[in-house]
Protein backbone atom coordinates (compact mmCIF):
# COMPACT_ATOMS: atom_id res chain seq x y z
CA UNK A 1 0.00 0.00 0.00
CA UNK A 2 2.98 2.27 0.59
CA UNK A 3 5.63 3.09 -1.98
CA UNK A 4 6.86 -0.50 -1.84
CA UNK A 5 4.15 -1.87 -4.06
CA UNK A 6 4.65 0.46 -7.04
CA UNK A 7 8.37 -0.02 -6.67
CA UNK A 8 7.99 -3.75 -6.78
CA UNK A 9 5.65 -3.51 -9.74
CA UNK A 10 8.22 -1.35 -11.53
CA UNK A 11 10.96 -3.84 -10.73
CA UNK A 12 8.84 -6.61 -12.20
CA UNK A 13 8.79 -4.80 -15.54
CA UNK A 14 12.54 -5.03 -16.10
CA UNK A 15 12.21 -7.63 -18.86
CA UNK A 16 10.01 -5.45 -21.02
CA UNK A 17 11.00 -1.98 -19.96
CA UNK A 18 12.10 -0.80 -23.43
CA UNK A 19 8.72 -1.53 -24.98
CA UNK A 20 6.98 -0.04 -21.95
CA UNK A 21 8.89 3.21 -22.31
CA UNK A 22 8.45 3.38 -26.07
CA UNK A 23 4.76 2.64 -25.65
CA UNK A 24 4.40 5.48 -23.17
CA UNK A 25 6.28 7.79 -25.50
CA UNK A 26 4.11 6.82 -28.47
CA UNK A 27 1.01 7.36 -26.40
CA UNK A 28 2.17 10.83 -25.47
CA UNK A 29 3.26 11.62 -28.99
CA UNK A 30 0.02 10.56 -30.62
CA UNK A 31 -2.04 11.95 -27.77
CA UNK A 32 -0.54 15.39 -28.23
CA UNK A 33 -0.14 15.54 -32.00
CA UNK A 34 -3.07 13.54 -33.32
CA UNK A 35 -6.46 14.92 -32.62
CA UNK A 36 -8.92 12.18 -31.78
CA UNK A 37 -6.31 9.66 -30.74
CA UNK A 38 -7.41 9.75 -27.12
CA UNK A 39 -11.13 9.68 -27.95
CA UNK A 40 -13.03 6.83 -26.35
CA UNK A 41 -14.13 5.52 -29.75
CA UNK A 42 -10.61 5.52 -31.04
CA UNK A 43 -9.21 3.75 -28.01
CA UNK A 44 -11.97 1.22 -28.37
CA UNK A 45 -11.08 0.71 -32.03
CA UNK A 46 -7.44 0.46 -31.09
CA UNK A 47 -8.15 -2.36 -28.63
CA UNK A 48 -10.63 -4.28 -30.75
CA UNK A 49 -8.21 -3.91 -33.65
CA UNK A 50 -5.60 -5.95 -31.79
CA UNK A 51 -8.02 -8.33 -30.08
CA UNK A 52 -7.12 -11.32 -32.28
CA UNK A 53 -3.41 -10.60 -31.96
CA UNK A 54 -3.83 -10.20 -28.20
CA UNK A 55 -5.50 -13.55 -27.69
CA UNK A 56 -3.04 -15.36 -29.94
CA UNK A 57 -0.05 -13.69 -28.31
CA UNK A 58 -1.21 -14.71 -24.83
CA UNK A 59 -1.29 -18.35 -25.91
CA UNK A 60 1.97 -17.93 -27.77
CA UNK A 61 3.62 -16.62 -24.60
CA UNK A 62 3.36 -20.02 -22.96
CA UNK A 63 4.74 -21.66 -26.08
CA UNK A 64 7.77 -19.38 -26.01
CA UNK A 65 8.28 -19.89 -22.28
CA UNK A 66 8.36 -23.61 -22.98
CA UNK A 67 11.15 -22.94 -25.50
CA UNK A 68 9.05 -23.29 -28.63
CA UNK A 69 7.09 -21.23 -31.17
CA UNK A 70 3.72 -21.99 -32.68
CA UNK A 71 3.91 -20.95 -36.32
CA UNK A 72 0.57 -22.61 -37.00
CA UNK A 73 -1.51 -20.42 -34.68
CA UNK A 74 -2.98 -18.29 -37.45
CA UNK A 75 -3.73 -21.35 -39.58
CA UNK A 76 -5.63 -22.84 -36.65
CA UNK A 77 -7.63 -19.61 -36.39
CA UNK A 78 -8.72 -19.97 -40.00
CA UNK A 79 -9.40 -23.69 -39.65
CA UNK A 80 -11.47 -23.15 -36.52
CA UNK A 81 -13.36 -20.43 -38.37
CA UNK A 82 -14.33 -22.87 -41.13
CA UNK A 83 -15.20 -25.44 -38.48
CA UNK A 84 -17.50 -22.91 -36.81
CA UNK A 85 -19.22 -22.06 -40.08
CA UNK A 86 -19.67 -25.73 -40.91
CA UNK A 87 -20.99 -26.54 -37.44
CA UNK A 88 -23.53 -23.74 -37.66
CA UNK A 89 -24.37 -24.78 -41.18
CA UNK A 90 -25.00 -28.32 -39.94
CA UNK A 91 -27.55 -26.89 -37.52
CA UNK A 92 -25.59 -26.79 -34.27
CA UNK A 93 -26.99 -24.22 -31.82
CA UNK A 94 -24.66 -21.19 -31.79
CA UNK A 95 -23.76 -21.63 -28.11
CA UNK A 96 -22.70 -25.21 -28.66
CA UNK A 97 -20.89 -24.39 -31.89
CA UNK A 98 -18.89 -21.73 -30.11
CA UNK A 99 -17.75 -24.04 -27.36
CA UNK A 100 -16.94 -26.77 -29.88
CA UNK A 101 -14.91 -24.35 -31.98
CA UNK A 102 -12.73 -23.33 -29.07
CA UNK A 103 -12.23 -26.96 -28.09
CA UNK A 104 -11.51 -27.83 -31.69
CA UNK A 105 -8.71 -25.27 -31.77
CA UNK A 106 -7.28 -26.69 -28.56
CA UNK A 107 -7.54 -30.22 -29.89
CA UNK A 108 -5.69 -29.39 -33.09
CA UNK A 109 -2.96 -27.62 -31.15
CA UNK A 110 -2.57 -30.37 -28.57
CA UNK A 111 -3.19 -33.33 -30.85
CA UNK A 112 -1.04 -32.28 -33.79
CA UNK A 113 1.64 -29.89 -32.56
CA UNK A 114 1.71 -31.00 -28.95
CA UNK A 115 1.95 -34.72 -29.53
CA UNK A 116 4.48 -34.50 -32.35
CA UNK A 117 6.72 -32.15 -30.40
CA UNK A 118 6.16 -33.52 -26.92
CA UNK A 119 5.74 -37.24 -27.44
CA UNK A 120 7.96 -37.77 -30.49
CA UNK A 121 10.45 -35.06 -29.62
CA UNK A 122 10.41 -33.47 -33.06
CA UNK A 123 11.61 -29.90 -33.48
CA UNK A 124 8.89 -27.34 -32.78
CA UNK A 125 10.01 -25.38 -35.80
CA UNK A 126 9.60 -28.27 -38.21
CA UNK A 127 6.35 -29.44 -36.68
CA UNK A 128 4.58 -26.10 -36.54
CA UNK A 129 5.92 -25.05 -39.93
CA UNK A 130 4.55 -28.31 -41.28
CA UNK A 131 1.20 -27.97 -39.56
CA UNK A 132 0.97 -24.34 -40.63
CA UNK A 133 1.46 -25.36 -44.25
CA UNK A 134 -0.79 -28.40 -44.11
CA UNK A 135 -3.57 -26.64 -42.20
CA UNK A 136 -3.47 -23.74 -44.63
CA UNK A 137 -4.09 -26.23 -47.40
CA UNK A 138 -6.84 -27.94 -45.47
CA UNK A 139 -8.60 -24.60 -44.92
CA UNK A 140 -8.71 -24.05 -48.67
CA UNK A 141 -9.88 -27.59 -49.36
CA UNK A 142 -12.49 -27.62 -46.63
CA UNK A 143 -13.90 -24.21 -47.50
CA UNK A 144 -13.48 -24.85 -51.23
CA UNK A 145 -11.89 -21.39 -51.21
CA UNK A 146 -15.29 -19.84 -50.65
CA UNK A 147 -16.23 -17.42 -47.93
CA UNK A 148 -18.48 -19.19 -45.43
CA UNK A 149 -21.11 -16.74 -44.29
CA UNK A 150 -22.28 -16.87 -40.71
CA UNK A 151 -25.47 -15.16 -39.71
CA UNK A 152 -25.89 -16.27 -36.08
CA UNK A 153 -26.68 -13.26 -33.89
CA UNK A 154 -24.56 -14.53 -31.05
CA UNK A 155 -21.46 -14.37 -33.22
CA UNK A 156 -22.20 -10.89 -34.42
CA UNK A 157 -22.49 -9.96 -30.74
CA UNK A 158 -19.10 -11.47 -30.07
CA UNK A 159 -17.45 -9.65 -32.92
CA UNK A 160 -19.31 -6.33 -32.95
CA UNK A 161 -21.49 -6.09 -29.86
CA UNK A 162 -20.85 -4.62 -26.48
CA UNK A 163 -21.64 -5.41 -22.88
CA UNK A 164 -22.10 -2.59 -20.39
CA UNK A 165 -20.88 -0.20 -23.02
CA UNK A 166 -17.62 -2.03 -23.56
CA UNK A 167 -16.99 -3.93 -26.77
CA UNK A 168 -17.31 -7.70 -26.42
CA UNK A 169 -13.83 -8.41 -27.85
CA UNK A 170 -12.41 -6.25 -25.06
CA UNK A 171 -14.19 -8.39 -22.51
CA UNK A 172 -12.77 -11.47 -24.17
CA UNK A 173 -9.30 -9.91 -24.11
CA UNK A 174 -9.65 -9.19 -20.40
CA UNK A 175 -10.94 -12.66 -19.65
CA UNK A 176 -8.15 -14.45 -21.53
CA UNK A 177 -5.58 -12.23 -19.85
CA UNK A 178 -6.95 -13.09 -16.42
CA UNK A 179 -6.88 -16.80 -17.17
CA UNK A 180 -3.36 -16.53 -18.59
CA UNK A 181 -2.16 -14.63 -15.53
CA UNK A 182 -3.78 -17.21 -13.31
CA UNK A 183 -2.03 -20.06 -15.11
CA UNK A 184 1.28 -18.25 -15.01
CA UNK A 185 1.27 -17.21 -11.38
CA UNK A 186 -1.15 -19.39 -9.53
CA UNK A 187 -0.83 -22.91 -10.85
CA UNK A 188 1.73 -25.69 -10.80
CA UNK A 189 1.08 -25.97 -14.53
CA UNK A 190 2.58 -22.53 -14.94
CA UNK A 191 5.66 -23.60 -13.00
CA UNK A 192 5.97 -26.74 -15.09
CA UNK A 193 5.96 -24.68 -18.27
CA UNK A 194 8.80 -22.52 -16.98
CA UNK A 195 10.71 -25.59 -15.80
CA UNK A 196 10.30 -27.42 -19.10
CA UNK A 197 11.39 -24.31 -21.01
CA UNK A 198 14.30 -23.68 -18.67
CA UNK A 199 15.67 -27.20 -18.91
CA UNK A 200 13.67 -30.08 -20.27
CA UNK A 201 16.18 -32.62 -18.94
CA UNK A 202 16.21 -31.17 -15.44
CA UNK A 203 12.42 -31.03 -15.40
CA UNK A 204 12.16 -34.65 -16.49
CA UNK A 205 14.66 -35.80 -13.88
CA UNK A 206 12.64 -33.97 -11.23
CA UNK A 207 9.59 -36.01 -12.14
CA UNK A 208 7.72 -33.31 -14.04
CA UNK A 209 5.54 -34.64 -16.85
CA UNK A 210 7.37 -32.92 -19.66
CA UNK A 211 5.42 -34.56 -22.48
CA UNK A 212 2.09 -33.66 -20.98
CA UNK A 213 3.25 -30.13 -20.27
CA UNK A 214 4.30 -29.69 -23.89
CA UNK A 215 1.00 -31.07 -25.15
CA UNK A 216 -0.88 -28.70 -22.84
CA UNK A 217 1.18 -25.72 -23.97
CA UNK A 218 0.37 -26.24 -27.64
CA UNK A 219 -3.19 -27.00 -26.58
CA UNK A 220 -3.38 -23.61 -24.87
CA UNK A 221 -2.10 -21.95 -28.03
CA UNK A 222 -4.77 -23.86 -30.00
CA UNK A 223 -7.51 -22.86 -27.55
CA UNK A 224 -6.48 -19.25 -27.96
CA UNK A 225 -6.63 -19.69 -31.73
CA UNK A 226 -10.14 -21.07 -31.31
CA UNK A 227 -11.17 -18.03 -29.27
CA UNK A 228 -9.56 -15.73 -31.84
CA UNK A 229 -11.56 -17.51 -34.54
CA UNK A 230 -14.80 -16.51 -32.78
CA UNK A 231 -13.78 -12.86 -32.86
CA UNK A 232 -12.58 -13.09 -36.44
CA UNK A 233 -15.75 -14.73 -37.72
CA UNK A 234 -17.96 -12.47 -35.62
CA UNK A 235 -16.32 -9.32 -36.91
CA UNK A 236 -16.88 -9.92 -40.62
CA UNK A 237 -19.86 -12.23 -40.34
CA UNK A 238 -18.06 -14.94 -42.24
CA UNK A 239 -15.23 -17.43 -42.10
CA UNK A 240 -12.60 -16.39 -44.58
CA UNK A 241 -10.91 -19.06 -46.71
CA UNK A 242 -7.82 -16.90 -46.66
CA UNK A 243 -5.12 -17.63 -44.07
CA UNK A 244 -2.89 -14.80 -42.93
CA UNK A 245 -0.03 -16.76 -41.43
CA UNK A 246 1.89 -13.55 -40.78
CA UNK A 247 -0.39 -13.00 -37.76
CA UNK A 248 1.30 -15.90 -35.98
CA UNK A 249 4.68 -14.30 -36.54
CA UNK A 250 3.31 -10.96 -35.40
CA UNK A 251 2.06 -12.62 -32.23
CA UNK A 252 5.50 -14.12 -31.64
CA UNK A 253 7.01 -10.66 -32.21
CA UNK A 254 4.65 -9.17 -29.61
CA UNK A 255 5.67 -11.86 -27.12
CA UNK A 256 9.36 -11.19 -27.75
CA UNK A 257 8.82 -7.44 -27.47
CA UNK A 258 7.22 -8.19 -24.15
CA UNK A 259 10.46 -9.64 -22.88
CA UNK A 260 9.78 -13.36 -23.08
CA UNK A 261 12.88 -15.25 -24.06
CA UNK A 262 13.09 -17.23 -27.26
CA UNK A 263 15.35 -19.59 -25.34
CA UNK A 264 12.52 -20.44 -22.98
CA UNK A 265 12.17 -20.43 -19.23
CA UNK A 266 11.73 -16.70 -18.74
CA UNK A 267 9.20 -13.98 -19.44
CA UNK A 268 5.46 -13.82 -19.04
CA UNK A 269 2.06 -12.63 -20.24
CA UNK A 270 2.37 -9.28 -18.46
CA UNK A 271 5.00 -8.19 -20.93
CA UNK A 272 3.15 -9.67 -23.89
CA UNK A 273 0.24 -7.30 -23.27
CA UNK A 274 2.55 -4.35 -23.75
CA UNK A 275 4.06 -5.89 -26.83
CA UNK A 276 0.60 -6.19 -28.36
CA UNK A 277 -0.42 -2.69 -27.29
CA UNK A 278 2.74 -1.33 -28.83
CA UNK A 279 1.79 -2.80 -32.18
CA UNK A 280 -1.78 -1.59 -31.75
CA UNK A 281 -0.88 1.99 -30.80
CA UNK A 282 1.58 2.23 -33.62
CA UNK A 283 -0.92 0.92 -36.14
CA UNK A 284 -3.69 3.16 -34.91
CA UNK A 285 -1.64 6.30 -34.40
CA UNK A 286 0.02 6.08 -37.79
CA UNK A 287 -3.26 5.50 -39.54
CA UNK A 288 -4.78 8.57 -37.85
CA UNK A 289 -1.73 10.52 -38.90
CA UNK A 290 -2.35 9.33 -42.44
CA UNK A 291 0.87 7.40 -42.68
CA UNK A 292 0.79 4.27 -44.80
CA UNK A 293 0.16 1.25 -42.60
CA UNK A 294 3.22 -0.49 -43.96
CA UNK A 295 5.28 1.81 -41.80
CA UNK A 296 3.81 0.08 -38.78
CA UNK A 297 5.49 -3.12 -39.91
CA UNK A 298 8.78 -1.42 -40.56
CA UNK A 299 8.79 0.24 -37.15
CA UNK A 300 7.65 -2.90 -35.34
CA UNK A 301 10.46 -4.88 -36.92
CA UNK A 302 13.07 -2.28 -36.13
CA UNK A 303 11.90 -1.84 -32.54
CA UNK A 304 11.83 -5.59 -32.02
CA UNK A 305 15.46 -5.87 -33.00
CA UNK A 306 16.39 -2.75 -31.05
CA UNK A 307 14.63 -4.02 -27.93
CA UNK A 308 16.54 -7.29 -28.05
CA UNK A 309 19.73 -5.40 -28.82
CA UNK A 310 19.17 -3.07 -25.88
CA UNK A 311 18.68 -6.07 -23.66
CA UNK A 312 21.93 -7.60 -24.84
CA UNK A 313 23.81 -4.34 -24.46
CA UNK A 314 22.72 -3.92 -20.87
CA UNK A 315 23.52 -7.58 -20.17
CA UNK A 316 26.99 -7.22 -21.69
CA UNK A 317 27.59 -3.95 -19.87
CA UNK A 318 27.90 -1.64 -22.85
CA UNK A 319 28.10 -1.53 -26.62
CA UNK A 320 31.82 -2.22 -26.85
CA UNK A 321 31.80 -5.35 -24.70
CA UNK A 322 28.86 -6.60 -26.74
CA UNK A 323 30.72 -6.08 -29.98
CA UNK A 324 33.84 -7.65 -28.54
CA UNK A 325 31.90 -10.69 -27.37
CA UNK A 326 30.17 -10.99 -30.73
CA UNK A 327 33.52 -10.78 -32.49
CA UNK A 328 34.92 -13.49 -30.28
CA UNK A 329 31.94 -15.70 -31.11
CA UNK A 330 32.29 -14.98 -34.81
CA UNK A 331 35.97 -15.75 -34.70
CA UNK A 332 35.22 -19.00 -32.96
CA UNK A 333 32.99 -20.11 -35.80
CA UNK A 334 35.08 -18.75 -38.66
CA UNK A 335 36.76 -22.09 -39.23
CA UNK A 336 33.60 -24.04 -39.49
CA UNK A 337 32.14 -23.86 -43.00
CA UNK A 338 30.94 -27.34 -43.94
CA UNK A 339 33.61 -28.05 -46.55
CA UNK A 340 36.51 -27.58 -44.15
CA UNK A 341 34.78 -29.75 -41.59
CA UNK A 342 34.69 -32.57 -44.14
CA UNK A 343 38.29 -32.09 -45.00
CA UNK A 344 39.08 -32.13 -41.32
CA UNK A 345 37.59 -35.54 -40.73
CA UNK A 346 39.33 -37.03 -43.75
CA UNK A 347 42.68 -35.59 -42.74
Amino acid sequence: MTAALPRRAWAATHRFRPVLLILAALFLLFGVTQEGFLDATNLRNLLTGVSILWVLALGMTFVLISAGVDLSAAAIVALAGVFLARALGAGAPPGVAIVLTVLFGGLVGAGVNGLLIGRLGLSFFVVTLGSMTALTGIVSLWSQTETQFVTARLLREIGMGSILGIATPIWIMAATLLVALWIQHRTYLGRDIYAVGGSRVAARLAGIRTVRTTVVVYGISGLCAGIAALIAVGRIGAASPQVDNAIALQAAAAVLLGGTSLMGGAGGVGGTVFGVLFIGVLQNGLSIAGVQSFWQQVVTGVILVLAVLGDRISAAGGVRPLIAAARARLAATADRPSDTANEGSSA
Binding site: R191, Y194, S199, A202, A203
Partner: peptide, 16 residues
Protein backbone atom coordinates in the same frame (compact mmCIF):
# COMPACT_ATOMS: atom_id res chain seq x y z
CA UNK B 1 21.84 -28.75 -17.03
CA UNK B 2 20.35 -31.75 -15.31
CA UNK B 3 20.06 -31.03 -11.63
CA UNK B 4 18.49 -27.57 -11.61
CA UNK B 5 16.37 -25.21 -13.64
CA UNK B 6 18.75 -22.32 -13.32
CA UNK B 7 16.37 -19.46 -14.10
CA UNK B 8 13.88 -20.59 -11.49
CA UNK B 9 14.00 -19.66 -7.85
CA UNK B 10 15.65 -21.55 -5.04
CA UNK B 11 12.20 -22.31 -3.63
CA UNK B 12 10.83 -23.63 -6.93
CA UNK B 13 13.83 -25.86 -7.41
CA UNK B 14 13.68 -27.21 -3.89
CA UNK B 15 9.96 -27.94 -4.08
CA UNK B 16 9.98 -29.24 -7.64
Amino acid sequence: HQGLVLQRSVADNLAM
